[in-house]
Computed example of a mutant assay.
Amino acid sequence: MRELNTTELESKTHDYFLDVEYANPDDVKNKLTQLINFLCSQDISKNILDRITEDYLDLYQKLEPLNDQSPERTKKDIIESLLTPDLQGAFGYFLIDKKFKEPRKFSAHYIDLSWKWYSKGHNYSEQQDGFNSYFLKPFKELFDWYLSESQTEKEADYFSYKSQEKVFEKLEKLEELLTKQGFGQEIIFNEIEELKQLTKKLNKKNWGEVIKGKFVDLALGGVITKEAAIKAIEFITGTELNLLQ
């Protein structure tokens, strides 16, 4: 599958999470394995999973060495440390991911986490309810937060919806400034619209390189002046540039 932008990814993941949540208990194993495979195959979602691991590294390191035979007291201490919804979401993701990495999967492969960690569920249906409440839904909510509200902090990060809005505001301001200076309005408009679309699927590093390339090309083509190109790149990326001198 091609790389999806944030809007497409949001739609796909929403549907896939719901498929897992409302699947027959016997079908959760396959549907959830497919979901994790999908998340790992897309650059934006893979980046989000990596960021969750990095942001909640302490919890990850506590969970990583544990197995089904780990002391109940250890499990209880970890559960009692989940004081916020985001910690619950990271907890859900880490344990789902541990199960995902196990080579042999049985019918209740994921949903039995409800019993092993919370003693919830005397049959598959009850275990699935507990699994959805304590693992799947909190993971989905945390994933959705990264997709919609998180800030781009590193070059490898992609723009969340909130970050996109800030970029769009800058691009629209830049379009206004350039057209007021008398540069080709239609060309500038088209270039700005293309940059908005690229914001939805490029990480911060690649997006910044595209910004530089586009305005350099506009200057070389005589659409805008070299000085205007330098100022435009600095305005959008916050990076001083001497490439055109």
Rank of each mutant, 00 (worst) to 15 (best):
D77T: 11
I78G: 01
I79W: 11
I79K: 11
E80R: 11
E80S: 08
S81M: 12
S81V: 07
L83R: 10
T84W: 14
T84P: 14
P85E: 09
P85K: 11
P85D: 13
D86I: 14
A90T: 03
F91E: 04
F91V: 10
F91G: 01
G92Y: 04
G92A: 11
G92E: 05
Y93M: 08
F94A: 02
F94L: 01
L95G: 04
L95D: 02
L95H: 08
I96L: 11
I96E: 05
I96N: 04
I96V: 09
D97W: 07
K98D: 09
K98A: 09
K98V: 12
K99M: 13
K99C: 10
K99L: 11
F100N: 03
K101R: 06
P103W: 09
P103D: 03
R104A: 15
K105W: 04
F106I: 15
F106K: 13
F106T: 13
A108G: 11
H109N: 13
H109R: 09
Y110N: 04
Y110A: 09
Y110T: 05
Y110C: 06
I111M: 06
L113D: 05
S114F: 07
S114L: 06
W115L: 12
W117F: 08
W117V: 00
Y118C: 04
K120S: 09
H122M: 12
Y124S: 13
S125H: 15
S125F: 15
Q127M: 13
Q127A: 06
G130I: 07
F131P: 06
F131R: 02
S133T: 06
Y134E: 11
F135C: 02
L136I: 08
L136Q: 04
P138Y: 10
P138D: 15
P138N: 15
F139T: 03
F139A: 03
E141V: 15
E141Y: 14
E141T: 12
D144F: 11
W145H: 14
W145C: 11
L147V: 06
E149Q: 14
S150P: 08
S150R: 15
S150G: 08
T152L: 03
E153W: 10
K154V: 01
E155M: 06
E155S: 10
A156C: 03
A156N: 05
Y158A: 05
K162Y: 15
K162P: 06
S163L: 09
E165M: 07
V167G: 01
F168T: 00
E169S: 12
K170M: 06
K170D: 02
L171P: 00
K173C: 03
K173P: 01
E176W: 06
E176N: 06
E176P: 04
L177V: 06
L178Y: 01
T179W: 00
K180M: 04
Q181D: 02
Q181L: 10
G184N: 14
G184T: 05
Q185G: 05
E186H: 05
E186I: 14
E186F: 13
F189M: 09
F189Y: 10
F189G: 07
F189R: 12
F189H: 09
N190W: 05
E191V: 02
I192A: 00
E193L: 01
E194G: 00
L195A: 00
Q197V: 01
K200M: 01
K201G: 00
L202V: 00
